[in-house]
Structure formats: C-alpha cells, structure tokens
C-alpha cells in the first residue's frame, strides 16, 4: 500500500528528474574545456601553441640573459635570442640557440668566448650590435662626430655674426641690449622693463590681442 509519505517521495523524485534532469544533462554537455586535476590535460593542446619545456633556474640566470641580449636569433625575426625565446613561441631556433649558450657556459667559456664562438659559427651578423672595430667604428663615431662638427661650425658662425652685430650696435646705439621676452607674455613689474615701457607694453597688448 502506498502511503502518503511514499507518494511525496515519488513526487519529489519525479520532480527532481523532470526539473533537474536537463540541468544535470546540460552540466554534462557543458563540461569545462579546462584541464582536470592538478595538471590536467588540455582538450586542444595544438591551439595552445608549441609544447614548452619546463623553465629552469638557468633560464633566469642574469649572465645568460645578458649574453643572449647581445646575440641575434637566426630565425630572421631581428630579435635577440632572449627576447625571441620569451616572446615568439613559434620559433624553434631561439630555444636551440639558448641551449647552445648554456652548453658553452658548461664548457667553462667566458662571456666573450661564448660570443666569439657564436660569431665563428653564425657570422658577424649574429651580434645585435657590431663590434667597435675596423669599419664598424664609423657606425658608432660618425653621428657624434657629425653633430660635434656641425655644433662647432654653428658656434663659430654664430660667434662671428654676434660679434659683428654687437660691433654694429655699439656704434649705433650704445648700451641698447635688452631682455625682450616673448611678446605674448606680460613682464613682471620690477623685472627688466621700466614702468614707462611696461605701461606702453600693456597698452599695446590690450590694443592688439584678439
């Protein structure tokens, strides 16, 4: 015999099935794409890019980083090895070059020796900046020399002209040098102009300013 309590139980169960079923089903259908567990598998690892190797302490070694900043990746990206291997994750060259740096370091080579080994193997263009020797010196020196030369010439010309001008002024109106600031700005009373000059300046400004 079905008691009232059984009826309620069955009704509740049916309700759960009717109402909760779709929810449970949709929960199953909406299974998260994320990995499961502590380090679960990705559903679509290819979309996450090339598989990576675990980073080690040596990857963060300042000596290695500094060296790799001086060496260009050979993939054609124009970046240095460190930047490329930590930026362009599709590049297969920079991780390999990084390993070469580590291997040379393991051989006990100094920084300069590692750089020299790279130049010997990959050519001079593996350096992010050319060595300051031979023709390359021109690369470093020419801009500075050009600016200094132009500065010296400019100074000489200006000096000559200002002396000529001052000589002419001295003949025409002795003691006529003034501090004329930008005409758009009022000069403080007690500054460089006389009260008459300032009054005239103020009159002109009122008259001329839009």
């Amino acid at each position: 015999m079905t008691t009232r309590r059984d009826l309620l139980r069955r009704g509740a169960a049916a309700g759960i099935v009717v109402l909760g079923g779709p929810l449970l089903l949709s929960a199953q259908q909406q299974e998260p794409l994320a990995g499961q567990g502590e380090a679960g598998l990705l559903r679509d690892p290819v979309s996450a890019g090339r598989a990576r190797e675990r980073a080690t302490d040596r990857d963060n070694d300042e000596f290695v980083k500094a060296l790799e900043h001086r060496l260009q990746c050979t993939c054609g990206c124009t970046l240095d090895i460190y930047t490329c291997r930590t930026t362009d994750f599709t590049c297969t060259y920079s991780p390999q070059l990084h390993k070469e740096v580590l291997a040379l370091q393991d051989e006990g080579k100094t920084g300069d020796e590692i750089i020299a080994a790279f130049v010997a193997k990959y050519g001079e263009d593996v350096l992010m900046a050319p060595k300051a020797e031979g023709f390359n010196i021109a690369g470093y020196v020419v801009p500075g020399v050009a600016i200094l030369t132009a500065g010296a010439v400019l100074t000489a010309i200006l000096r000559r002209r200002s002396l000529t001008r001052q000589a002419a002024l001295a003949g025409a109106a002795p003691g006529a040098s003034v501090e004329a600031n930008d005409p758009g700005v009022p000069v403080l009373p007690g500054g460089t102009g006389t009260p008459e000059e300032l009054a005239r300046l103020e009159r002109e400004l009122r008259e001329l300013d839009p």
């Binding site: 502590e38 380090a39 679960g40 990705l42 690892p45 090339r50």
Partner: peptide, 11 residues
C-alpha cells in the same frame, strides 16, 4: 608562453 606536454602546467 605555453603548456608542458599539453597539460595545465604552464610556462
């Protein structure tokens, strides 16, 4: 940077 062997272990 990517994952290790297609897992959630991330670089």
């Amino acid at each position: 940077a990517g994952s290790v062997q297609g897992t959630e272990e991330a670089v």
